[in-house]
């Protein structure tokens, strides 16, 4: 199973701003380097970039949840 992991701890967000749509939805295809979420830590919002291409099978973290370093945040399906 290919997953994308959080590189830093913090609070996880699926969208760039509360009123904006999510960066990506389940089932969409993503490419390496694409911004797929934000993690807020140390008073900054840091972009989470995909380190692999594929189809988003599932987000494993809810919007607003706390994440830890190394935690799986997205499961990728077939590209």
């Amino acid at each position: 199973m290919t997953t994308i992991k959080a590189q830093m701890p913090g609070v996880f967000y699926r969208r760039p701003a509360p009123e904006k749509p999510a960066y990506v939805d389940d089932g969409e295809s993503i490419s390496e380097g694409q911004t797929i979420a934000l993690i807020e830590v140390m008073k900054t919002f840091n972009e989470v970039k995909a380190d692999a291409s594929g189809t988003v099978a599932e987000f494993l973290v809810e919007d607003g949840d706390e994440v830890d370093v190394g935690q799986d945040i997205v499961r990728l399906g077939e590209a």
Binding site: P9, G10, E40, M42, K43, E66
Partner: peptide, 8 residues
Amino acid sequence: WKVTKDAD
């Protein structure tokens, strides 16, 4: 105590 995201 748990360290929050506001830790720098």
